[in-house]
Design a protein around this nucleic acid. Structure first.
Lengths: 186, 186
DNA sequence: AGCTCCATGTTAGTCACTAACATTTACTCC
DNA sequence: GGAGTAAATGTTAGTGACTAACATGGAGCT
């Protein structure tokens, strides 16, 4: 692991720790850089944006693959929903835990509404490409992919909000399943 | 028209004019306030955000109404798509022209990707409420409404991008129709 | 050792946005 | 018509994210 990746990781860890501890808005970038043993300038060279510290696009080629191999009869929306559902069920616990930490921060920070969607640009593109291979028109594919990711993000955030009150405690998987069913047109 | 609304309008006009002329990023808020004959402070009291100057949420209760009265058999996604389509066809030319101007600015400003969706919060809520009246669960309704608005926004932006090259010149209505068909699950 | 990139540091700045307090404008009530 | 009052705006001074231009350090190669 080169020096660059080391710093990169240090910054992300520091950011997540401070965000969870004292909130996103209340954490200046200077403090993050400090905790990572680095200058603010370096922070911005690595991430470009405070948001990016929390939301690096974790692109997963498996989702696009799953969408691509859906039966040809399905509509674009349903192919997306079912393909994503398929891959979601195979998500390892480590990734899930990381996602939950991020969701916790996003859920309590109004400035980050819509941030999940924004951080999924390459995933959207990959999903849209998969739909095009299945025979969809390019512009229509992008519309569908954006819609599904936006809907899914909303569901994840709703879950994170609800999980803060001890009453709820629904399983994340169930929430995602229901959201994908809605998006698929059930 | 009270003084407040006058200033409000002056600011919005000034902003749109300057954005179209020299671009969003290249237009400081100070210049907008200046052109409107007002201080920067006043600008932020009226709009709170530079984005808001371009994207005040123009909430239209008719769309929600159209969605609410869709036949009960339809899925949430289809009800949204068809309800919105229905209202879209009755949009007056003036509103359409205003929308096009906004789209032109958003399309050429990467910092505004996703801004249309962000600016539709109350519309999303209204649409979700309409779905709930139709019998959908509250969380599912919000997922569907967010997804459709996001998809629609994507289509509008793609249209704005394409319209900049003289080759294309597709009709806006056609683009919206196709997008809504995809989102409805065709 | 010397050379060379790569990653980082330094400095100084721009710009969106905020807080606290002062001032004007417009409207009402006597 | 003048006093009072509240809304709308101005002033000042600041914070915090982000950038540009240039300077420094350190790991590897010859």
């Amino acid at each position: 692991m080169g020096r660059w990746q080391q710093t990169h990781e240090a910054l992300r860890r520091a950011a997540l720790e401070l965000f969870l501890e004292q909130g996103y808005d209340a954490t200046p970038t200077a403090q993050i850089a400090d905790l990572a043993g680095v200058t603010e300038m370096t922070l911005f060279r690595h991430f470009g944006t405070k948001e990016a510290l929390l939301l690096e696009d974790p692109y997963d080629p498996l989702m696009a693959e799953a969408v691509r191999t859906r039966p040809p009869g399905e509509s674009s929306m349903r192919a997306l929903a079912e393909g994503i559902r398929q891959q979601w069920h195979q998500l390892d616990p480590e990734s899930t835990a990381a996602l939950c930490a991020v969701l916790r921060v996003v859920a309590e920070t109004s400035a980050l509404r819509g941030a999940l969607e924004r951080g999924s640009a390459t995933t959207v593109t990959a999903l849209a490409d998969a739909l095009v291979i299945r025979g969809a028109a390019a512009d229509e594919a992008r519309v569908a992919a954006t819609a599904v990711i936006a809907g899914l993000s909303t569901a994840l955030l709703e879950w994170a909000q609800a999980t803060r009150e001890p009453a709820g405690q629904v399983s994340l998987t169930d929430v995602v399943d229901r959201a994908l069913s809605v998006l698929g047109g059930d």
